[in-house]
Structure formats: C-alpha cells, structure tokens
Design a protein around this nucleic acid. Sequence first.
DNA 1: TCTTTATTGAAAATGAATTTCAATTTCCTT
DNA 2: AAGGAAATTGAAATTCATTTTCAATAAAGA
Lengths: 146, 146
Amino acid sequence: MIKEITEKKERLKTYMKQKGFKSTRQRDIIASEFFKCEDHITAEDLYIKINKRHKDIGSTTVYRTLKLLAESGLATARVFADQLTRYEPVSEDEHHDHLICLDCGSIIEFEDPKLERLQEKIASEFGFSIVDHNMEFYGYCRDCKR
Amino acid sequence: MIKEITEKKERLKTYMKQKGFKSTRQRDIIASEFFKCEDHITAEDLYIKINKRHKDIGSTTVYRTLKLLAESGLATARVFADQLTRYEPVSEDEHHDHLICLDCGSIIEFEDPKLERLQEKIASEFGFSIVDHNMEFYGYCRDCKR
DNA sequence: TCTTTATTGAAAATGAATTTCAATTTCCTT
DNA sequence: AAGGAAATTGAAATTCATTTTCAATAAAGA
C-alpha cells in the first residue's frame, strides 16, 4: 500500500522530469494525500484535508496539481450530475463505472467485462474510435432505498 | 411534427396548472423554441436563439423555464465533460446514450436494448434501484478520425 | 374588476475553476 | 557552492455558468 504510493510518486516524478516540470514540496504533499485518500474527491475537499496540516498550501495549487496528475495519467477527472470535477487515482488498466446514490451520495464502483465489450461493439458500429467513456447509474443504494 | 409540439405544450400546461404555476407568453415562446430546436442545447444558446426575435425575454427566464421543463418531465438535463448543462426533449419512454466527438463536438445518440438490459442486471446485483442513468463515449467520429 | 400570488428582467451574488503577477523556489550550469 | 534562467507558488482578481434578489408586472380565480 505504502509501496504503491511510492511507486506512483515515482511515476509522477518521471513524467515531470520528462516535461521539464519541477518537483516541489507542495506537489509531493498533495500527491501523497491524494493517493491515500478515498476516491472521487473534489479539489476543494482535498484542499480542506491538506490545509489542516499544511496551512501554507493554497487551494490554487491543489487545483493545479490535480490537473497535473490527470495529465500525467495518474488520475482521472470525472464530472457527475452535480457538476463538480472529481478526481480518482487511476487503477492500472481496467475501467470501472459508477453507481451513485441520490440519497446518501455514496459512489460505488463496479466493473463488468461484458459491459465493456458491448460498449466497444456499439462504438465500432458508428465508426467511432473511443478514447474514454463514462457511465453512471443514479438511484438508491441498498441502505437508502428502505 | 407541429402536432407533437402542441401536444407537449399541452402537457406542460397541465403540469403547470396542477402545480399552481402560471402560463406566460415567455414560457410559451421558450418551450416552443426548445421543442423545435436541435438536441442538447444549453440555456445560453437557447437564449441567444430566442433573443434574436424576442429582445424582451431575458436569459434568466430561459434558465428558469428549462429547469421547469425538466421538472415537468418534458426535458432532460445532462452534464457532459465540458461541465455545461444541456437540455434535450424527452422522447417518450426509450432511453438513449451518447457518442461525443472530441474534435468537432458533435453528439450522436444511440440506443441499444441489450445495453439497457445489461445495465439493469448490474444494478440489481448491487441492490441498487435505478432512477436514471447516463452513459457517454468520448472519442473521434467517422469524419474526424481521418 | 379586484386581489392574491406567481413571474419577470436586471443586477447582484454565488461558487467552482482559472488566470495574473510579484515573490520564491527548483534545478541546471559553472 | 554560487549564479541565474525558468517554473512554481499563493493571494487576489477574473471568468463564466447559474442562481438569487427584488421591485415592477402579469396571470387567473373570485
């Protein structure tokens, strides 16, 4: 777990070097905190979390660093129905989708190869070459549907 | 086609009466224009369209009326990756999904019952009761992928 | 017609995200 | 280690879509 984070930070460093970006204390702290935190966090929420221990790191830098992480391929940005940009760490290759509870707001991830295959098939029918896709269910989770 | 619009406007009137809302010239014009225009329009774009002929209708009212249409079930609000809210007329019962070209921005609708069935199955596996879902492919369309 | 209540439009407010800019820091190169 | 070019930072300002406020107006039932 710790190893995974170190590995990701290593990848980030490589990416930055390659792009001529500099590693900084702030980026290091923000990336660590991001990799360790729960999924689907907004820049604002991550800022609040970080700001508790690091009063000198501004929200602007958090926004910027999350964007950098997304560009480097280590995070994915998503926009759900509430229109906020949320980031989640990229987990290797597999794609997953989301079940979002309209009551408690919890986000459940799932993955289904059959769904993935079907998606590919549909896209190719339209001559579309897919770069990314996004699928969300909105409804009520087991606990909230009472 | 004209008949369809009249019918939709009738439904809107019923909804408004039931809710104690009032029908106004503005709402009538905005709804007509919306039902007749191309899909996936933003409030801003619809406002620009309407403003050409009706200088006295403000953008605020367009925003408000589109929201009203969504509440009444005659329109659906969607947020894609660009974070703008787009509205589309609701077409009876069937659900459709979207292919979005990252180059030209065109939005292709499609519908696949197999996909719908699979989605239902997945949701029930998680004990989720679905209210709505949303699925988008991002990529390059036939024309843009060169 | 009268009167209540909703609606309207302009302007102000909101809120997420981005940009600006001067001060600071990183990371080469000597 | 020191110097210097170039990137980064944080605060404040800016943007831009959307929402709210509020006084004036319009709708619709009595």
